[in-house]
Computed example of a mutant assay.
Amino acid sequence: MGITMAHRLIRPLQALALCALLGACRSSQAAEAPAAARMLTRIEGFGFPESVRYDPDQDVYFVSNMAGPGSLKDGNGYIARVFAGATDRAEVFIQGGKNSVVLNAPKGMALRGDTLWVADIDVLRGFDRRTGAPLATIDLRPQRAVLLNDVAVGPDGALHVTDTGIAMTDKGVIYQGGDRIFRIAPDRTVSTIASGAGLGRPNGITWDPDGKRWIVVSFDPFRSEVYAIRPGDSVRTILARGPGKFDGVERLADGRLLVTCWADSSLHVIDGQHTQRVVRDLWQPADLGVDTRRGLIAIPLALQGRVEIWALSGRTAGNRE
């Protein structure tokens, strides 16, 4: 989610578009990495990429790009589409200001049916996952949303959206309060399932089908947590703690949790009571995605304008869809 270097990137959207047209988004092989994980590819040329969502039906990665400060309503946000089987092929798929699209600083994404749902500051926007055409807008300004961050779909089709309660400005991240988790029912009725400072600036969210619960990570700068919340209950069950600023979370098919962390620049794997840092030296890693076809992990690095593709050793990284 980092944005403090926004002024140093010049025309990132045009750079990615040109890169895609030439088929030349740099895809480089990694050097030796720890045994727990191995980097396969770097995909360069993005404009502050914040989230990756894999679409198994089309075999593509959607990458949301803030293209500037994450709280600025500048209309220049965009979503790139990268072909997972050939990551040197990329294109600007949805672009703010074109084809009737409004998109400011997109962050977390979720797929439900043929709709790609995207968190965009204080509204949730829906786009056709195949054409990119705008389909819907759910306005959470009446609920006083501050910064919608991640989106996940529950077994009942309801969307769950975190509000981290921060402002992302060219001067850095400023806490404003208003930590909440919203539920948007299939009929688009909005409710709040949890709220308050105890949520620790909720960031990433995902559904745990075996535990029948929501898994949330907190972005508190000094003491981050991974916790579970069951439907219909706002009580938190702490699963793990960290040094601060947990960002993205994904649950794997074997029950392990993947969590990105700013404070120690790492990707953590949480397996029951055991936590392991499997990837280090990640500069402000954001909302990761899981390639369920290949068992790979896609990690966006906003300040560096790239997405890194990693393979975990041992058990597969495949995820339930």
Rank of each mutant, 00 (worst) to 15 (best):
G255N: 12
L312I: 13
F83V: 12
A133L: 10
T237P: 03
G108W: 00
H274W: 11
V269F: 08
R38I: 08
R293W: 06
H268A: 03
D170N: 15
D74H: 14
P300C: 12
I166L: 13
P202T: 07
I215K: 02
L21I: 12
D233I: 04
Q273M: 11
L147C: 09
R223H: 15
A167D: 12
R320D: 14
R315E: 11
T206K: 07
D74E: 09
S71Y: 00
V278M: 04
W262T: 07
M168W: 05
V146I: 15
Q143D: 08
V102L: 11
L282G: 10
I297A: 01
L124N: 10
P231K: 02
A152P: 03
L199P: 03
G244R: 02
C25N: 12
G305W: 01
G77N: 01
V161F: 00
D59T: 10
Q284T: 14
D233Y: 00
D114S: 13
V146W: 00
E50I: 02
Q58D: 15
G289Q: 05
M1E: 04
R320V: 14
H268S: 07
I270D: 05
R81T: 09
D179S: 10
A84K: 06
T162A: 03
Q14G: 15
G75C: 15
R230C: 03
V226G: 03
M5Q: 13
A33Y: 07
A24M: 07
F62G: 06
V190T: 11
H160E: 05
R144K: 14
D291I: 06
G70H: 02
R320K: 14
W214G: 09
T162N: 08
D187H: 08
A197L: 12
A263K: 06
A197D: 06
V278D: 00
P49S: 13
L267F: 02
A136K: 14
D57L: 14
D88L: 08
D139T: 10
A36R: 10
V216Y: 00
C19M: 14
D114Y: 03
R201G: 12
R320P: 13
N76S: 15
R125N: 10
G272L: 03
G232I: 10
W262V: 07
A228M: 09
S27H: 09
M5T: 14
T192G: 07
T237H: 09
A24H: 12
P69A: 12
T169E: 01
Q276V: 10
V269L: 13
R277P: 03
I215F: 01
V259Y: 01
A30H: 02
I166Y: 08
S266T: 12
L288V: 07
G85F: 02
I229N: 00
I238Q: 11
L288T: 04
G198K: 10
L140Q: 05
A136S: 11
N99R: 15
N99P: 08
R230G: 04
P106A: 04
L148D: 03
F246R: 02
L16F: 11
S313N: 15
A24V: 09
T164V: 13
S100I: 00
Q14T: 13
D122L: 01
